[in-house]
Amino acid sequence: MNTDEHKEQELLDLLKDYPMPQAEAGFYDQALAKAAHRGTRKQRNRWLATGFGSALAAGLAAWVVFAFLLGAPTQDVAEPTIPGVTIALEEPKTVRLMFASKESLDNAMLTVSLPDGVELSGFPGQREITWETSLVEGRNVLPLTLVALTPAGGEVFAKLEHGDKDQVFRLRVNIS
């Protein structure tokens, strides 16, 4: 095997080894049950007639879009309406925060602050979670799986910082 073939094989071996989590126990049964319960033509037609896609109608991930324009003038920008999502008590729901960045940014810091009674799945008991990330120019998606433990609701704050600049995004969380 020559050097190029060896490199190719090394890459193929690594790709074959690239892991992927298994579905959690019961996930398939739940997914099949949801499809059977919600997938009737009557329901689907009603969802489409009301203008929602099947994902929204099925209670899947909600999308919230933010424009992340660090350094852009703010005086001409009208006060944005705070977007909101409604989640059911004790039922995890994924909300995807989409940040549209005008430029790529390395070493940005993202801090998510949660109201009392709302947790981020995987971070039990934590009101504030911070991690370092990078943004690409254009669309950046952050899925957050929220779980409401009390019916109070409140606001989630997502603060993006890069260098000496920062921007805070607000998301109202209503509990049904």
Partner: peptide
């Protein structure tokens, strides 16, 4: 492999089953 994350993969998977059932 398409979606690249658990949340999006499971949404896509569920959306497929809903569509397939229909």
């Amino acid at each position: 492999r398409l979606a690249g994350s658990k949340a999006e993969a499971e949404d896509l998977f569920q959306e497929l089953l809903l569509k397939a059932y229909g």
